[in-house]
Simulated assay, not measured.
Amino acid sequence: MEKERTLAAFAAVMPAFAIFQDARRQQLMTELCCKEELTVNELTATTSLSRPAVSHHLKLMLDAGVIKVRQVGVERRYSPNLAPVIAQLKELTTALES
């Protein structure tokens, strides 16, 4: 095991680990993965969170890069952006296994 490679892989994936420590963000990501793309109002309707709370969590997830947003008219549609996180996790597991 290369310690530097492993530590770098841990560092790369830590933002995703940190963002998903919160059960509400786990719930929002699950909804997004099931439906592929949702607005704040649609997410609010599927959770017990208020609209401001959903918006807050979406902003944190967007900043962490685990979701993306697409403007459609006046709506902002959110969707998962997990490919980079999955690549980071694969790099971490490879580093740990070597």
Rank of each mutant, 00 (worst) to 15 (best):
A18G: 01
E31L: 15
R5T: 06
L49I: 04
I19G: 07
A45M: 10
E75R: 11
L92D: 04
V72I: 08
L28P: 11
E2K: 12
H56P: 00
L32T: 04
Q21K: 14
A23T: 12
N81E: 13
E36D: 12
T6V: 03
P84S: 06
H57L: 09
T6G: 03
A16G: 08
R70I: 11
V69G: 11
M29K: 07
T47M: 10
S48N: 09
A64W: 01
D22T: 04
Q71E: 09
T47S: 15
N81A: 14
E31C: 15
E36N: 11
K3I: 08
I67H: 04
K68Q: 09
E37G: 13
R25Y: 14
L92W: 02
N41Y: 01
M14V: 02
T46C: 14
L92T: 05
L43G: 13
M29E: 09
K68H: 11
N41T: 08
P80L: 03
E42I: 05
E42M: 08
E42R: 09
Q27T: 11
T6A: 12
L60P: 00
S98P: 00
K35Y: 06
L38H: 09
K90H: 08
H57C: 13
V85N: 02
T44M: 08
N81P: 03
L28T: 12
V74A: 15
V85W: 01
Q26M: 05
A87E: 10
E2P: 04
L60E: 13
A16F: 01
E75I: 00
R24L: 07
F17Y: 11
Y78T: 13
Q27W: 08
L58N: 13
H56G: 07
E97D: 08
K3H: 14
C33R: 12
L49W: 12
L38P: 10
F20P: 02
A87M: 04
P80Y: 02
A45H: 05
T44N: 10
G65H: 06
M29S: 14
E91F: 03
M29P: 04
A23E: 15
Q26E: 08
A87G: 07
E75P: 00
R76G: 13
T46F: 07
Y78L: 14
L28R: 07
L60N: 06
A9L: 04
L49N: 10
A11N: 04
A8L: 06
T94R: 13
M14W: 00
S50D: 10
V69D: 06
R5I: 05
F20K: 05
T6P: 00
A95C: 02
F10V: 08
G65I: 05
S50W: 01
I67V: 14
R70H: 14
V40C: 13
S79E: 05
A11K: 07
F20Y: 11
L7W: 01
G65E: 07
R70E: 15
L32A: 08
S98V: 00
A64M: 03
P15N: 06
G65M: 07
P15Y: 01
P15V: 03
L49R: 05
A8G: 03
L32H: 09
V66T: 07
D22G: 07
E4A: 12
C33Y: 12
T46E: 15
K68T: 11
A45F: 00
T47R: 13
A64T: 13
I67G: 06
D22R: 08
A45E: 14
R70M: 08
P84Y: 02
E97G: 12
K68W: 00
T39D: 06
L82P: 02
